[in-house]
Design a protein around this nucleic acid. Structure first.
Lengths: 225, 225
DNA sequence: CCTACTTTGTGCATCGGTTCACAAAGGGAT
DNA sequence: ATCCCTTTGTGAACCGATGCACAAAGTAGG
């Protein structure tokens, strides 16, 4: 049941959640440049969205702006960070240390936002024991033990497609409920588990679709039937 | 002739376009396993979507199913491929050969779907001249010349954030209208240009948000679903 | 205190997308 | 040919997201 006068409605729309990190990035940039206060219009431009949308998004977190003035940058950074759960430290494990897994392990963008790569796993004895980004690569057999021991709560799957579901099942079995999947497969999970997927090939295909139209443009009817 | 003979409505919804690659992947899997015909229900399960949605999506391409039977796998693969523009060969350039660029260059998923990595660029003289995935890394100064010469129409940006906008401007200036951006910045482009962005850190932040709520405890809205 | 100006927060109309549910269309059996 | 069974294709209701436009709320200056 939901109380009617819940000051900060916990039901933040998914679309809004997806944009908060964008605002946060823009705000960090402004904070670095010493900007103290920002209007919805300016922040919207920096984040590449419409200002009305931005204001509505922020209004879901509470009333943190001052009419006639704007938003205080530092304060807003804090509020958004807290809402996203970035004020705590998240231990992330990366499974699969191929090209992609390696790139992810070295990616600075993680660490800077409250995420800490806490473990790397691979099945290939050739790479197990290697040190990547200052971390020892563990054998996949250690998956369950290490995840528990190090309090990993988010797992990134960068395995071959064929291995993804099995690894997924195993991490879900030890209680992981947040998965970022780079393998090109549809994962089956209990609905208590969140899966987000990133598929590089799909993004290119969407671009190709639009590119084709631009190129075909006015002559489109040529292949019509 | 217009009227209902506008059989294939060219205005395919964006949400549908984004799912077509998913269906395609599922269909390829089925084709390999020798499946000749598939129902919307089965294909929907394989692609991880609702069957009504799948049927509506496919209906935007035309009437390619047979009532009482389903869809012929090979035929549907062809139709979707054609719609997405995958029957032609797309030359892709990757700019920035750091960890991520390297991973992308080696990523098999591109080649297998009508995409061909045709050029690699970097600014660092240390890596220029290296061979990655069978390709010579060109200096960024060659950007315009090589893009034109090799007919590159899609550019993948895997540069540091600070360099992304400048590279973007340059490729747009030579006529590229499709960009896949991995750099964590909002790119400014003319609206004739399509930009899709992939931000690994944003995906993690979205997961963290939901994870926090799950862990968040008693004050959480009890969403018993 | 009052007036002029700025910018937030939001009600409302609208739009695109999802889902339901069923008539229409085809196959197969007799 | 007729009946029954399966599955598509789609009308229509629904739902969430977007964007306009403005009242409310604040600042600044006299």
């Amino acid at each position: 049941m939901k109380s009617p006068s819940q000051s900060r409605d916990r039901g933040i729309p998914e679309a809004t959640v997806a944009r908060l990190p964008l605002y946060l990035r823009a705000l960090h940039g402004m904070a670095e440049r010493g900007v103290a206060t920002v209007s919805s219009e300016d922040l919207a431009v920096a984040a590449g969205v419409n200002s009305a949308k931005l204001r509505k998004d922020l209004s879901h977190l509470g009333s943190y702006g001052t009419r006639g003035v704007g938003y205080e940058v530092e304060y807003l950074v804090y509020q958004i960070s807290r809402e996203l759960g970035l004020t705590q430290d998240w231990a992330v494990a990366i499974v699969g240390v191929g090209n992609l897994g390696r790139a992810l392990a070295n990616y600075g963008g993680f660490v800077s936002r409250g995420f800490r790569v806490a473990a790397l796993f691979d099945a290939d004895p050739e790479v197990v024991g290697d040190t990547i980004a200052g971390l020892n690569v563990e054998h996949i057999d250690e998956l369950e033990a290490v995840i528990k021991r190090r309090g990993v709560s988010i797992v990134v799957l960068a395995t071959p497609a064929a291995a993804a579901q099995e690894v997924c099942d195993r991490v879900v079995a030890v209680g992981v409920t947040s998965i970022l999947n780079f393998a090109p497969v549809v994962l089956t999970v209990p609905d208590t588990v969140d899966v987000r997927k990133v598929d590089l090939s799909i993004e290119l295909q969407i671009l190709a679709f639009h590119e084709q139209r631009k190129a075909g443009g006015p002559l489109m009817a040529v292949d019509g039937q």
